[in-house]
Amino acid sequence: MDQPWVFIVLFGLIFIVYATIVPKRSAAKGQANPTIREIEETMEHFTAELDEQNKALIQMLAETKRDYEMQAAKLSSRVETLEKQFTQTSQEMSKLGYAHEELQKKTVHRADLISTSEFNQPMVIVENEPEPIAELPMAMNLKTRYAELFTLYEQGKSTDFMAKKLNMNKGEINLIFQLAKQEEKLSAH
């Protein structure tokens, strides 16, 4: 037996046999080791606490999951509502854009008719025009018709201020200014 591992194995076997025989003798005598009993009680107490903590943790996770599912359902319903509103708004915007283009075409068309016709002559009715205009009045000059508006413009007032003061829409004011510019260009020719 020249090998050291043989001694280690033999020593381990002796230790195991001794460890199994000694507790049997102590138990047979009715004397359990007090430290072992304390360790066992501590371990039982520790496992009981772990079980309670695990149950509390599982309950908390279940509540969190329910809350998350409720919040997710609320958010998905809000997203659906917003998508519907966006679709409706997009459709309304496209309709308004189309109506605005049509209005601009009619306005430019009418401005062309006003500039090309004589004031004493009856106006020519063009196709797609809903209402006939019989005769143009003599005073069609926009600067005289909207003198107060052009006075405020020359004073450097903002479009918002003019709209509030004259009880007009900003779009209407901008349209009048555009028509006045076209009128000036046409009268210059």
Rank of each mutant, 00 (worst) to 15 (best):
M1L: 01
M1V: 01
M1N: 00
P4E: 03
W5I: 03
W5G: 00
V9K: 11
L10P: 00
F11C: 06
F11V: 05
G12E: 12
L13K: 03
I16E: 14
I16S: 14
V17E: 08
Y18G: 06
A19E: 13
I21V: 15
R25D: 04
A27W: 14
A27F: 13
K29Q: 06
G30V: 02
A32I: 12
P34G: 02
I39E: 15
I39C: 07
E40A: 05
E41D: 15
M43I: 13
M43K: 14
M43H: 12
H45I: 10
H45G: 10
F46C: 11
F46Q: 14
F46G: 10
T47W: 04
E49R: 15
L50D: 11
Q53N: 11
Q53K: 15
N54K: 02
K55M: 04
A56F: 11
A56K: 14
A56H: 12
I58V: 12
I58S: 08
I58W: 01
A62F: 09
D67M: 11
D67G: 13
M70H: 04
M70G: 01
Q71H: 05
A72T: 11
A72H: 10
A73I: 06
A73G: 05
S76K: 12
S77Y: 08
V79L: 09
V79I: 11
L82F: 12
E83D: 13
Q88I: 10
T89C: 04
T89G: 04
T89M: 09
S90N: 06
S90E: 08
A99C: 01
H100R: 06
Q104C: 05
V108G: 06
H109Y: 11
R110D: 07
A111I: 13
A111N: 14
D112V: 12
D112K: 11
D112I: 14
L113R: 09
L113Q: 10
I114F: 09
S117P: 01
E118D: 07
N120F: 02
N120A: 08
M123R: 04
M123T: 08
V124D: 12
N128H: 15
E129N: 10
E129M: 14
P130S: 14
E131W: 07
P132T: 12
P132F: 08
I133S: 02
A134T: 11
L136I: 15
A139M: 07
M140P: 01
M140Q: 05
K143V: 07
T144W: 08
T144F: 08
R145H: 03
R145G: 05
Y146N: 05
Y146L: 05
E148T: 10
E148V: 06
E148D: 09
F150A: 02
T151W: 00
L152W: 08
Y153K: 12
Y153T: 11
E154L: 03
E154R: 07
G156L: 07
S158A: 06
T159S: 04
T159G: 02
F161K: 03
A163W: 01
K165L: 00
L166I: 02
N167T: 00
N167W: 00
N169P: 00
G171T: 05
G171A: 02
G171L: 04
G171E: 05
E172D: 01
N174Q: 10
L175K: 15
F177L: 04
Q178M: 00
L179V: 11
K181L: 07
Q182S: 00
E183L: 02
E183Y: 06
K185A: 08
